[in-house]
Design a protein around this nucleic acid. Structure first.
Length: 895
DNA sequence: GCGGACTGCTTACCT
DNA sequence: ACAGGTAAGCAGTCCGCG
């Protein structure tokens, strides 16, 4: 279901629009057909007129030497390629004069050199307009991208030799990919609707949506700072325009392998593709099987439901051709790890068995394998993205494997097979392969196409092609929309070293060794059981600070003398009072949009479900971006890296929380705990809460809301370690060892018991009884361990992820690495990211992979010690003592 | 040569 | 390739100890 279909866009009663559209689509199919017949490139070039279609992707087409836009027409459900017809050229900028550029022979005589011209740009680092020289090239690779002899490298190499050290030669904006440059310069909006009219690409305006946007701005955002309104408007437009219904097919291939445990190398592609499954979003399912010598005489009756189309091929080439047909026809192709395996293997295998390159619809890259016509989304890359994992899917899965992601999100898993792929019967192979394609597709279709919509929304916000959005991290998304904004405002995009040279680094001292600056405050908790605890927090504290305090690389330590008094407390940085920084405007407006519009709308029960769902997608996408928006300034890998901005943000955050705590105490509220942007209040009255919130709004300009209310909270003496029971009896556990995923299931089960028991406590009076039950729980666990009464040794396994490959641990050898090495000795291949499951044993290296251990070897006392430290976190807050509880048990044993 | 105090490494988690 | 802060366990080192 989509939020709004194109038919809603061009209502049936609007005759003029309808006629025009029918005309164009009629023309379109004819022209498209002609194009296909004439071209050896099977993809369709956009006809002279194309009805409203979604801008999904942009590339540079090396053959045509043009920027190429991929448009998805939701009516014909096809991708059309539109090639630039504006004469846009690749370029970079330099501080050399045009004359100087021309005097560098390797530039002036460069085969890709076209021209130089002088342009004016706003230099935000110095708050002035500057003249720079634009070096225009015939093709993007001449600017940069080749290993040697690019214009951007030649200038710093040759300038000193020719002109001496008169000035330091600089090159700007030379590392921006050409298609990004094209998007920015033409102010195109990826993910939005465009049509082709008389060969030109023009945006589609939706009157209905436009009216809506005006209204939202005038009502919800009437009190916004005036200079943010234009930003808000652009964001709202991107987010309120309807979503596409994206027709897609999931592809999975299986490959023959003579060695059971080895997956064949995808570049060598030495063995045949023996099975492929194609499952599309319209219910069509196909399994393609290769008839093989090694299975001669076997039944070809395939045990699959009747709606699955099973086809046998005598010839691998015919099978691959069939896959290629699908890759060519479907607008979106979904794989799980297709960049590294499926498409990579297909591409190389096809060449090996005699396909000509132009017959292969795959566009090979070093790390990515894209499609010549369609859009390849590799879900592995998307789900691997940390931000997506944490903020969009709440850390539901840990290892990024199809099996684990699908079980966590869909509750479905891969079919377990007991033999190697090559030994499966046709029927088993078909079922296995089909299942993979089915769950791969379902990962994009569950929850009303959440993943596809998330991709579309992120495409729009980031201003990036969808393929890039799905493969790159959040810092690239942020970089992209910031670069876009620079170009839109005719601002020079500074190099990282320019920013550092002007703004410097950090001045505060981090608490953690090796960190660059001081971070947030964590308040010492008041240990114990506290009834009626309200947790208040600042909504998106850091983005709020960036907005309210006008933070950005241009505003921190700005060049104006008169701003120097505007000091950030706890630092010697000052902030500009004259001009809004780009980052402040972009992040601030996104923040307000989420807080005032999308988050409330996503919870508004009066809205139809489909609409609410769409708002929830947007709200989640904004959350992902906002959560990273402060961190990027402190990340050296970010192009607009500006440590003072990150440092100032954290410093203001400390000031905000400190003042808030002081105010709460002034109001007579006891503050039990606080971390970064939150404070835990003991039994506050509604009036106290109201006063505190109003104070925050008035004096800090930031919203402080009640985030959650606990019936009671159990605070240990440790920071980032507590347990809260909500009014409805659900339990919120933070940081406690009993909840950590690496601990043995055996101990975790007892911890869960304790949690369940605590959930039942309604009043202080009921605590005494609960304590007795808790003692029993601890006793039972102790007793079972002492008597070695576990059912399954697997329940005793610690499960720890290997952060890097085993041989790279040189400084120390942690236990999980010891276990990993024992596995390696047995010939098991171990790599970074693998989950190592080990138990503690009594004999030398004191650990063993659980697969290799037996019950008798277990060191029960180590487990008891671990049990104690796990439960101590809660027991001390309850006034209980592990030793005493166990002492009782020891006595009981004698009775 | 042994053991306790200490530091550093590593992982998992919180905001 | 977003940040810093905290907890915990273990590995390794240093130093005192007749």
């Amino acid at each position: 279901m989509t939020l709004s279909r194109l038919d809603d866009y061009f209502p049936k009663d609007n005759e003029s629009v309808k006629t025009e559209l029918e005309e164009t689509s009629g023309k379109q199919s004819h022209e498209a057909k002609k194009f296909r017949e004439e071209s050896n490139d099977l993809g369709a070039r956009a006809p002279k007129n194309l009805p409203p279609s979604y801008f999904i992707s942009a590339t540079y087409d090396g053959d045509a030497n043009l920027a190429c836009i991929k448009l998805y027409d939701p009516r014909s459900k096809r991708i059309y390629k539109w090639y630039d017809n504006t004469g846009h050229k690749p370029y970079c900028l330099t501080n050399l004069t045009p004359e100087e550029v021309r005097k560098i022979p390797r530039v002036a005589d460069h085969p890709g050199f076209e021209d130089v011209e002088t342009v004016e740009k706003y230099d935000a680092l110095h708050d002035r307009m500057i003249k720079v020289t634009k070096i225009i090239a015939k093709d993007p690779l001449s600017i940069g991208g080749r290993p040697r002899g690019c214009i951007r490298d030649i200038i710093p190499e040759d300038y000193p030799r020719i002109f001496g050290s008169e000035k330091e030669p600089k090159v700007w904006e030379a590392a921006i990919k050409y298609y990004e440059c094209y998007i920015y310069d033409r102010e195109l909006l990826p993910g939005m609707l465009y049509m082709v009219k008389d060969g030109d690409l023009i945006p589609v305006v939706d009157e209905e949506a436009e009216k809506n946007i005006k209204e939202i701005l005038e009502t919800v955002f009437k009190d916004e700072p005036k200079d943010l309104l234009s930003y808000l408007e652009s964001w709202i437009r991107l987010l309120e325009y309807p979503a596409a219904d994206m027709k897609r097919v999931a592809l999975d291939i299986e490959v023959y392998s003579p060695i059971a445990t080895r997956v064949p190398d995808a570049e060598e592609a030495p063995y045949p593709i023996i099975c492929a499954s194609l499952v599309d979003s319209e219910g069509k399912k196909r399994v393609l099987l290769l008839r093989r010598e090694d299975r001669r005489g076997e039944s070809e009756e395939i045990d699959l439901p009747p709606n699955v189309d099973v086809v046998f091929f005598n010839d691998e080439k015919a099978l691959v051709s069939e896959i290629f047909k699908a890759l060519d026809e479907y607008p979106f192709v979904i794989t799980f790890n297709g960049d590294d395996f499926d498409l990579r293997y297909l591409y190389h295998r096809a060449q090996k068995i005699g396909f000509r390159r132009e017959e292969i619809p795959i566009d090979p890259g070093r790390r990515v394998y894209l499609l010549r016509n369609g859009i390849h989304i590799d879900l592995y890359k998307f789900f691997y993205n940390r931000s997506i994992q944490v903020y969009a899917f709440a850390q539901k899965y840990r290892n990024v494997t199809l099996d684990e992601v699908a079980s966590a999100i869909l509750g479905k898993s891969k079919i377990e097979i007991s033999k190697p792929i090559s030994e499966l019967s046709y029927s088993e192979l078909a079922r296995y392969c089909l299942n993979d394609a089915e769950i791969t597709l379902e990962l994009t279709s569950y929850n009303d196409d959440l993943v596809m919509k998330l991709l579309l929304v992120l495409t729009r916000i980031s201003k990036m092609p969808m393929e890039d959005v799905s493969r790159q991290g959040v810092s690239r998304w942020i970089r992209s929309f910031m670069q876009y904004e620079h170009r839109r405002k005719n601002m020079l995009i500074p190099n990282q070293e320019d920013i550092i040279a002007v703004k410097g680094k950090t001045t505060t001292k981090a608490i953690i060794k090796g960190k660059k600056y001081k971070g947030a405050i964590v308040v010492h908790p008041v240990p114990g059981v506290h009834f009626n605890v309200a947790v208040m927090d600042f909504q998106s504290l850091y983005p709020s600070i960036i907005k309210v305090y006008n933070l950005g690389y241009q505003s921190i330590r700005c060049p104006h003398e008169e701003c120097r008094r505007n000091i950030v407390p706890g630092t010697d940085h000052w902030i500009c009072t004259k001009q809004r920084a780009l980052e402040s405007a972009l992040i601030g407006s996104l923040r307000d949009l989420r807080v005032y519009w999308y988050k409330p709308r996503s919870k508004d029960k009066s809205l139809p479900e489909a609409k609410r769902n769409w708002y929830d997608v947007i709200q989640r996408a904004l959350k992902v971006i906002l959560n990273a928006s402060y961190g990027v300034f402190g990340a050296e890998t970010f192009d607009l890296y500006c440590p003072p901005v990150a440092e100032a943000t954290a410093a203001i955050g400390r000031e905000v929380i400190t003042q808030t705590i002081r105010k709460a105490e002034e109001l007579g509220i006891q503050v039990l705990y606080g971390d970064t942007d939150s404070i835990f209040l003991k039994n506050p009255s509604p009036e106290q809460i109201k006063m505190l919130a109003e104070w925050a709004e008035k004096t800090l300009g930031m919203e402080l809301d009640v985030d959650k209310v606990y019936r009671y909270a159990v605070l240990s003496s440790r920071k980032k370690n507590y347990l809260g029971v909500f009014e409805d009896g659900s339990v919120d556990v933070k940081g406690l060892t009993g909840k950590k995923r690496h601990i043995p299931r055996f101990i975790k089960r007892y911890f869960d018991e304790l949690e369940k028991r605590l959930a039942k406590v309604e009043s202080p009076a009921e605590f005494e009884e609960a304590k007795e039950d808790i003692k029993k729980i601890v006793q039972e666990c102790y007793y079972k361990l002492k008597r070695r009464e576990w059912e399954d040794i697997n329940d005793l396994a610690f499960e720890v992820v290997l952060g890097k490959s085993p041989e790279t641990y040189t400084k120390t050898t942690p236990q999980h690495v010891k276990a990993a090495r024992l596995l390696e000795k047995r010939g098991v291949e171990i790599k970074a990211g693998d989950l190592i499951r080990f138990v503690k044993v009594t004999k030398d290296p004191y650990v063993k992979p659980v697969e290799l251990a037996s019950d008798e070897e277990i060191d029960a006392d180590k487990y008891i010690a671990y049990l104690q430290s796990t439960f101590d976190q809660i027991l001390d807050a309850l006034g209980l003592d592990f030793e005493k509880i166990i002492g009782l048990t020891r006595l009981e044993q004698f009775m």
